[in-house]
Amino acid sequence: MNIVVCIKQVPATTEVKINPETNTLVREGVESIINPFDMYAIEEGLRIKEKVGGIVTVLTMGPPQAETALKEAISLGCDEAVLVSDRAFAGSDTLATAYTLARSIKKIDDFDLIICGKQAIDGDTAQVGPGISEELNIPCVTYVKKIEKIEDDKICVERMMEEGYAVIQLPIPCLITVVKEINEPRLPSLRGMMKAKKAQITILNAADIAAENNRIGQVGSPTLVSKIFAPPFKGEGEMILGDVGEQVEKLVNKLKETKVI
């Protein structure tokens, strides 16, 4: 089975702050990681490969530095790595990204299953996975928490819903996005790390994937970020002092005022 896992390199969010004066991201010393949800996608791809055979290709779109994310994926056991990188992709929104990745997947050639994380922790949009499936005109199921069965021509998955889960069968080729319940990602192995060090990463640019100019980068992006700002500051909270009895008394009165309780 040919599996393509789409990943994204993101800043480790806990450290991302906005400078309240300049309204820009503070990025000093911010470490780049593979989007945590994509780690589950990689793991699921590897597990499927270990079960039914095949190869796992990991794909990302990003600046040249994103190569480190691909190498990490190789250290975990992925076989091939493709970086789609071109200045022409600058300013891509989710639609342009989905288009670019879909074009790249076509270039990769035969694929049976595409796996994405449910969303990236920097954008939190969850749009690229379904977008890719639409561009490739293949079926897609999001929020998969379990793959029940894999056959040559179809798979059966459990999609997490608000009130439980749906059991859905999809024909192959198809795309799924996965949630953290699906597995526990492995750590790299020493041999994997050695392999990653030597690994050749395929780099594709806009011409390589025969992208239409008006569908990539800023031009191909319907949405525009018009403003970025820090969330409104909540202001100093009030510490309620006194002994336990007094604290409780005061708090209950405050909460009663809200008329919610």
Binding site: T94, L95, A126, V128, G129, P130, G131, E134, M161, P222
Partner: peptide, 23 residues
Amino acid sequence: ATTIGRSFASRIAARIHTGLTAD
């Protein structure tokens, strides 16, 4: 922005080629 809405909106936007802002 439910499980259904988020997936569905993404596919519609991709098919129509228009912009979508989640959440």
